[in-house]
């Protein structure tokens, strides 16, 4: 019996995890179906665009700038070990566009947007605002989830594109000001080395990460338990799930795009 207990716990945990994955998948498809069927709530969509996109710009910009700068320093220092300092512009560009830009923006969105969506919807649930929506003939999936997920799918790739550019700019500033690169040749090396497929993969990752971040916020908000503790748990769980899923999706998408 004592030996069986850990197995029982493991079994319960696995079953619980599988059930949650199934519920999230059903929720995501439900949200998607509401995106495609009228009515559309344009005001909520525009508010979500502003909240997820415009208001996330400062944190995305600062994160990308400092990461690009640090990346330039690391590559220069590491490259110096085998006389490869000159590859800084190329590696900063490819590192930011293929990997760090989308992942860091995705994680920033998970921290800033997923948490805010989850806390807002969970509070609405706890204070019966979701029930009020239903009694006012408004489907919560259509009014709350669809506009937020659609906005994230559209605006996070744009944020990733901006993050990529700012990150490369951060590397450029460090490269030119601190590491002695020629400005024109730094920019030329960057532009020559990047391919369209790098940029497309970055934007596709952005859309996937945006969709994950908004869906997790909405799902855990809607599933919230009662009271302040319920809101807190929902917020915490949404950010954890979004961050892990973004990193897992990044691995899968990187394998699909670049494994050959």
């Amino acid at each position: 019996m004592i030996l069986l207990s850990p197995l029982q716990h493991l079994g319960r945990a696995v079953l619980g995890l599988l059930a949650t994955i199934g519920q999230v998948a059903i929720f995501a498809f439900d949200g998607l179906s509401h995106m495609l069927r009228p009515p559309f709530y344009w005001r909520e969509f525009l508010a979500a665009l502003l909240q997820i996109g415009w208001l996330s710009l400062p944190v995305v910009g600062l994160t990308a700038f400092f990461t690009g700068g640090a990346l330039a320093l690391q590559i220069y220092a590491g490259g110096a070990r085998f006389s490869a300092e000159a590859v800084v512009p190329q590696i900063v560009a490819i590192g930011m566009v293929r990997e760090l830009g989308p992942v860091l923006v995705g994680l920033m969105i998970a921290a800033r947007v997923t948490s805010s969506i989850a806390a807002e919807i969970a509070t609405m649930k706890v204070t019966e605002q979701i029930d009020a929506l239903v009694t006012l003939s408004t489907h919560p999936m259509k009014y709350l989830t669809a506009p937020r997920v659609l906005a994230a799918l559209i605006v996070v790739p744009i944020l990733v594109g901006i993050g990529d550019i700012i990150g490369i700019f951060g590397g450029y500033v460090v490269g030119v000001q601190q590491l002695g690169f020629n400005s024109a040749s730094y920019l030329k090396n960057t532009a020559d080395f990047l391919e369209l497929s790098d940029i497309l993969s970055s934007l596709i990752k952005g859309a996937a990460f945006g969709g994950i971040a908004a869906t997790m916020g909405c799902y855990f908000g809607m599933q919230s338990g009662r009271g302040a503790q319920g809101v807190g748990q929902a917020t915490k769980a949404s950010v954890q799930a979004a961050a892990v899923l973004i990193l897992a999706a990044n691995f899968i998408l990187t394998s699909v795009f670049f494994s050959s």
């Binding site: 508010a47 509070t123 609405m124 204070t127 019966e128 605002q129 029930d131 009020a132 239903v134 009694t135 006012l136 003939s137």
Partner: peptide, 21 residues
């Protein structure tokens, strides 16, 4: 039919349930 059914009802919630936004 949900929409037509719910359109017949009005509801005052215990805490008001007003939309904060």
């Amino acid at each position: 039919e949900r929409d037509a059914f719910l359109a017949r009802f009005g509801m005052l919630f215990q805490g008001g349930a007003l939309f904060d936004s």
